[in-house]
Design a protein around this nucleic acid. Sequence first.
RNA 1: GGAGAGAUGGCAGAGUGGUUGAAUGCGGCGGUCUCGAAAACCGUUGUUCGCUUUAUAGUGAACCGGGGGUUCGAAUCCCCCUCUCUCCGCCA
Length: 423
Amino acid sequence: MLLIPFIRANKTEVIARLAIKNFHNTELIDQVLQLDDLRKNLQQELDELLAEANSIAKQIGLLFKEGKTEAAAVLKARNSQIKEKTKELNQKLAETKDQLNEKLVEIPNLPHESVPPGKQASDNITVHEEGIIPKLPENAVPHWDLISKYDLIDFELGNKVTGAGFPFYKGKGARLQRALINFFLDEAIKAGYQEVQPPLMVNEASAFGTGQLPDKEGQMYTIGADKLYMIPTAEVPVTNIFRDVILQEKELPVKTTAYSSCFRREAGSWGKHVRGLNRLHQFDKVEIVEVVHPETSYQTLEAMKAHVAGLLQKLELPFRILRLCGGDMSFTSALTFDFEVYSAAQEMWLEVSSVSNFESFQANRMKLRFKDNNGQINLAHTLNGSALALPRIVAALLENNQTDDGINIPKALQPYTGFERID
RNA sequence: GGAGAGAUGGCAGAGUGGUUGAAUGCGGCGGUCUCGAAAACCGUUGUUCGCUUUAUAGUGAACCGGGGGUUCGAAUCCCCCUCUCUCCGCCA
């Protein structure tokens, strides 16, 4: 969430920049500022009363020691009255804080100045494109046909055991998955990220910390009996490692990578865009997360992009990078680049990674700070990116590398798969 | 799941109603000493919110797992919740 003093000092700019994200609720901004004023007034009033009560209580203590019980009784009565007032004020203050927070949390992050305006995916800007789109054989087919031809993934079985969108990976299909996970993790470790294996469920506070709550409750699977949420991405448990943490400046940057299964309800999507591996309820992903000094977060964003691009180059996949427009960006992001690979048989670009700088938005929500060398406490910046999401990578690998009698595995991956071809 | 014990500052650990934001030790930071370092010694050491002609300053308030209560006054008494540990049961 945004800092109130910042909103107050830059109200016009805040409104203008939120408009890029198609957020036009200026009333909400005003309400936040008004509630904050009220909060301050109540705080002041309450503090004064409490100060008086404290001093009287001390006097009573002294009077008792001197045996002046009558004088003490007078003060006691006075303090009882003050106490009634503080109770009232306290309640008002708590209510005001709740209301303020409720509103504040509804204001999205400000987009970076380089974010183009726009309403939907078609307004995104392609900033980079590389790799060769392969010429497929005459009888080339989409990955779902290849998957059944070589018996790599069983959707029907997943359907039986769990439901649509929860496939079984089998044989070389399963081994390809495992190879990709190890490849991605090893590359991340080489780039200086520390590996963690996070829990696959998180509590409410964590889901709030990274911004899934209160907004996107519907996106997550919930474990109602235990008030837990299945993670939609490893970003959630990994970033929340740092919730309520004050780091030392010299500890920055903190670079973390994690492999996890991800669970997304994604209700209401049908058609060929969700066919095969294009969209699943459970999928695997390797995520990279960084906590950095505010001054270096945009350099870090570039480094993360380079890392993701390197992975796709090694996998020999044609890809492009998009600068997301205001309307297509997430609530929490300040600047996001999407990576899409070309899936040659579907003749479609598939999103395989999203790399974002959240600046201090998440950090403010989860109170992730660092103490600088002058002893000052500041909010850190957080970033994350997929490096990479598996299913669509698998789809593109299968389609782009198909031949009449098999599928070739890219060289970089062969040490991990232990085989060079699927046939 | 059953029984018991506990939750205090970065860590360890005192504190059972009245200048206790909290002894002491360790760690951290600054200094003295030293060519330098170690040792020793001295000093310092949390977070949040408010106010003060925004001040690496002053001042008020809050915080001893979380929430509520008793009291003029609570880390200290009472209630609820959460978590941790030990033993038993179960289990990979």
